[in-house]
Amino acid sequence: MPDLAPPDLASLRTEIDRIDDALHDLLMRRADLVAHMAASRVKQGGPTFRPGREAVILRRLLERNRGALARPAVVRFWREIIASSLAQQGGFSVATQGEAGVESPLARLARAHFGLLTPLRLHPTPTRVLASLASGEAAVAVLPAPQEGERPEAAWWTQMESPRLHIVAALPFLAPLEAARDGGREKAPPQAFAISPLAPDATGRDRSLLRFEPLPEHSRARILSLLNTAGLAPRWLLRRESPTPMALAEIEGFLAEGDPRLGALPFPRLQILGAYAEPEPEE
């Protein structure tokens, strides 16, 4: 049988235009549904920002993604759709660290996650960023992931008011894969965290951040042993010695107040700073 002639360029463009119209119709319908939900939330007092729900949406779409559409394109497209839905519901802005007129990597990361049109409020220090969130000037704060050996003024996690504020998301949601020591590839750690007055939602695949004050006699090895014995094996652990000894551990799973494993730890002050959806692999 003779080969079928390939469609001409004009026919392909016509088909793309038809698909664009269908997509636009669906997006307008989606916006109408968001407006209806927003009105219901106003009556019921429910939150508009649901990072756990956002993560579940993106995971479902990535799971069903097939063909030539790249995973980063899926996430970028739906992050903008989610951002437009938040904007519809009013008063959503993001505070982060930076200087006016300077597009820092942290600001770019915040814009990529919360949408190009979401108002971004820049402040010179982490303390000012958290103050902007606590005062209600911003709905969400984005700050860089804690690092070992960081300067005291950069260690925002030691200043964060808990349980008034919570870590609710890790950025970026789509994590690049990096070479591991054993020759395999692992997801890169988060570059930043999103903080909100809202409590985090469990998504089924989560990580939690635990802040505590170790006793003077607690070495790093001893802290790791205590966490492992309690069934809270940390993925990573940071420790600061001054001005007050304090440690931060990332724990697999969603930790909630009242978890019996927390009661087995001998630390005098222990707080769950929040939880976030485990990032998805970029590839």
Rank of each mutant, 00 (worst) to 15 (best):
L86E: 01
L86I: 09
L86R: 15
A87H: 14
A87N: 06
Q88G: 14
Q89A: 15
G90N: 01
G91S: 15
F92D: 00
S93K: 00
S93H: 01
V94M: 03
A95P: 15
T96P: 09
T96K: 11
Q97D: 00
G98Y: 04
G98N: 03
G98H: 07
A100E: 14
G101Y: 08
G101V: 06
V102C: 10
V102Y: 12
E103Y: 00
E103V: 08
L106Y: 04
A107I: 05
A107S: 12
R108A: 10
L109V: 01
L109I: 02
A110I: 15
A110C: 14
A110M: 15
R111F: 01
R111V: 02
A112F: 02
A112Y: 05
H113M: 00
H113W: 04
H113A: 11
F114K: 00
F114D: 00
F114G: 02
L116Q: 10
L116V: 11
L117R: 15
P119Y: 07
P119F: 06
P119S: 04
L120E: 00
L120C: 00
L120D: 00
L122A: 03
H123K: 12
H123I: 02
H123Y: 15
P124V: 05
P124Y: 06
P124Q: 06
T125Q: 04
T125W: 06
P126G: 07
R128Q: 11
V129Q: 00
L130E: 06
L130M: 09
A131Q: 13
A131T: 09
A131H: 15
S132C: 13
S132E: 11
S132D: 12
S132V: 07
S132I: 11
L133F: 10
L133I: 08
L133E: 02
A134V: 06
A134F: 06
A134H: 07
A134W: 03
A134L: 13
A134K: 10
S135E: 09
S135A: 07
G136N: 07
G136Y: 14
G136H: 13
E137W: 12
A138L: 08
A138C: 13
A138T: 12
V140G: 02
V140D: 04
V140S: 01
A141H: 05
V142E: 01
V142K: 01
P144E: 03
A145Y: 13
P146M: 08
P146L: 11
P146I: 12
P146S: 08
Q147T: 09
Q147K: 13
E148T: 11
E150I: 03
E150P: 01
E150G: 08
R151D: 08
R151T: 10
R151Q: 09
R151K: 10
R151N: 07
P152C: 09
P152I: 15
E153W: 08
A154Q: 09
A154K: 04
